[in-house]
Design a protein around this nucleic acid. Sequence first.
DNA 1: GTGCGAAATTATCTTTTGTTAATCATATCT
DNA 2: AGATATGATTAACAAAAGATAATTTCGCAC
Lengths: 198, 198
Amino acid sequence: MTGSVTILQQLLFDLAGVLPANTAPLFAMTRQVKLDANGIYIREGDRERRLAFIEQGIMRAYMVKPNGDEATLFLRWENQFIASHETIIQRKPSRFIYRALEPTTLMEIDYDVLEDVLKTHPEYEPLRNFFLMRMLSESLAMIESFVTLSPEERYRSLLAERFNIVNRVPDKYIASMLGITPVSLSRIRKRMHAKGKS
Amino acid sequence: MTGSVTILQQLLFDLAGVLPANTAPLFAMTRQVKLDANGIYIREGDRERRLAFIEQGIMRAYMVKPNGDEATLFLRWENQFIASHETIIQRKPSRFIYRALEPTTLMEIDYDVLEDVLKTHPEYEPLRNFFLMRMLSESLAMIESFVTLSPEERYRSLLAERFNIVNRVPDKYIASMLGITPVSLSRIRKRMHAKGKS
DNA sequence: GTGCGAAATTATCTTTTGTTAATCATATCT
DNA sequence: AGATATGATTAACAAAAGATAATTTCGCAC
């Protein structure tokens, strides 16, 4: 039994009072996916509406810019969902690549199947709502950091809030997520060490 | 009869097949709010979980930074929802101020009342889902613009996609939304005029 | 341990942004 | 209309970021 199921069952109970014994219709439709470090989950152009809960590992969503450079949109880790948002929400082929940074285990469901399950079992609906709201909340926090903080402050804030995640990810992807170049992040780190250590 | 009701009824029919005649339980709980230009809808510290559909006008969500400067998080206009996201999602007092930029008309509902309505009328649920997904999608597009584009490119892209909105809003708020100062936006505009006009 | 490749740092130079303050333009109010 | 406040532009300088390339460090495979 995967821990993901337990976690989601608990959440479903807390949110909607659904007993673990009554969650079979949902979890019966899921399957496990294992990715090696650097393994690709979704490619640019993919149209499959796959939705995955991260059991173990870190995923990175990035795009390849016209000039060939990569830009990391976000990272997702344990107990978060990863999916091609544009494919799920707008049925567009993915413009992003979703790739594991570590050996990663996912619990996957086809989004169309999930919608069928939700239609026949509306009692699971609060779960979708919860994660949608959580993702919206996190996205707005990210936007907030872009409009209120300098690159150095964004990095400090990320360190303060997600030290273990930053620690598990190469700096160049962190830099990209902060909207700056790796060279610039390196200089920020240097300045930070030069001054007060905190 | 407000146009908002018609629009939402149509959406509810398209999304869930709910007939306009069957939407009374929802719209009975709404009320109209009118704001003058510059009028405040939600203040910093407010804890009321008000959710509003913008019938006419533009709303601005901004925070006051420790140094006293304002930072605009986002703008919302006709046919979008505005609410203190942190208050709705995390029940925290609002850290942002939500204010009208023009004379604005809102159709408001108390979020706790909405949840009651959704509990007794789950057939309205697709509407919530639709707007949550739309907001998530727009937020991720915003983040994408921060990690893939330079300030000038962000401004160009905003002009290309939302010319009429940019036109209705003072540049200083646009600048703030783009993560730059008004001075810097002014220079960008100058550079743009100097070179190719497009 | 050695060697290899990727990541991070450093250096140099150019471009852009931030900051502050002054000026110019434009609404708005009386 | 005239006065006033707000927003936009410009100027001057300091600070930071981008680009490119060289160098160093680090992790990993052999």
